[in-house]
Simulated assay, not measured.
Amino acid sequence: MTLALNSLTDGAWQERAAAHHSRVNRYAKPYLARRSSNQKHPVEDFLFTYYTQKPGQLARWHPGPGVVLTGAAATERLNWKFYRTADDGELTASGALGEGPAVVLDLEKFVLQRKDAIDFARIILGRTAARPAQFGCFGLHEWAMVYRQDANAVRHEYLQLRLGSEGTDTVVEENRIRCSHFDAYRFYTPQASGLNELAPTRENQREMEQPGCLHANMDLYKWAYKLSPALPSELVMDCFELSWRVRAMDMQASPYDLAEWGYPPIRIETSAGKADYVAYQRGFAAEAAVLRERLRVAVDALPTP
C-alpha cells in the first residue's frame, strides 16, 4: 500500500497542536494539581493512574502517518521518537518542497518496533467487534472487588460503601455475576472469584472481549495510545473522552457513595437502576462501535514490516 502524503505549514499544524493541548489540559491540569497536593479523585484520576499513558505524553500532538510538517518548529520533533527529516521525494509528493525544514513520522521504524502491538490491536479490535454485545452484567464487577473484603485490605480506603459491607455483600450474592473482562475480573476478592460464571484470563482475552463491556470500550483508549504516534492525536483524544465518560458511569453504578463528589448513584440493586445501567451501556456501546471501526481502519492502513 502506497501512503498518500500531504503537508501542513507551520501555522496550520501548530494551530492543531494548540487545540489538542487545550483539549488535554481540561482533564490533565486538575489531575496534576491534585497530585501535587497529594489529593485523590476516585473518578477523574483513573485514566492517568490505571493506564500507562502520562499527561505529558498525551499532550503531545501527532498528525499520524503521511503528514509532512514544515517550519522551524517542526525540527524539535527530531528529538521525539519515530520522527525523521522528510526526504526530497516526500517533500515533492506532499507539496512541501521549498517550504523549509520538514519532518515526517518514521512509519517504517514504527511498524518494525511495534509489530506485536499492531498485531494485537488488529486482533482485539476485529474480534471484539464481531461478537454480539452482552448487557446483563449491571456493573457488578465493582461490587465483586469489595465482596467480603478484608478490613486490612480495603480497595479505596477513603470511600464509603453506599449500602455498607453487609448490604454490598448481599447485592453480590443475590445477583448473577458474569464478567467477561480480565482486567476487571483480576481485581475480584478471592471470595468473589468463584462466583463469576466466566473465567477470563490474559490468555483468552482475545476470545472473551465483547462490545457491550464498559471496560472493553474504555480500553479503546489504551489501544489508541499504544499505537501513537502512528494515529492522529484527535482520534486518541476521542477515545480518551469516551473512556472518561464510561469511567464516570461505571463508578456511579459502583457500591461507593460518590454523591459528595458530584456523581449521583445508579442503584443497580433495584430494577429501575438496572434499566438505567443498561440504557447507558447501550449508548456507550454504540459510540464505541464507531471508534472501534475508526481504529480498525487506521490499523489496517499501517504497512506490513
Rank of each mutant, 00 (worst) to 15 (best):
W261N: 10
H215V: 04
P55V: 00
G139M: 06
Y50F: 14
Y188E: 12
A275T: 05
Y83P: 11
N204R: 03
E293C: 09
H20K: 00
Y31R: 06
A18H: 03
L235M: 01
A286V: 13
F182V: 14
W244L: 05
M1Y: 01
D219M: 08
S254H: 05
T85N: 09
A102K: 11
W143D: 08
L58M: 00
A301F: 01
V236Q: 01
E142M: 09
D116Q: 13
D300K: 04
G95Y: 13
A289C: 08
A4M: 05
V43S: 12
P55F: 00
Q57F: 00
A102G: 10
R294T: 09
Y51R: 09
A230W: 00
P190S: 13
G262L: 05
A288H: 08
S94M: 06
I266G: 03
P265F: 01
K226L: 11
A144E: 13
R202Q: 15
A33Q: 06
A144H: 12
K226A: 10
P232T: 08
C137N: 11
G262R: 07
N204E: 01
C213M: 03
Y158T: 11
A93D: 03
G136R: 07
D45K: 10
R60F: 00
A133P: 14
Y185H: 14
E209L: 15
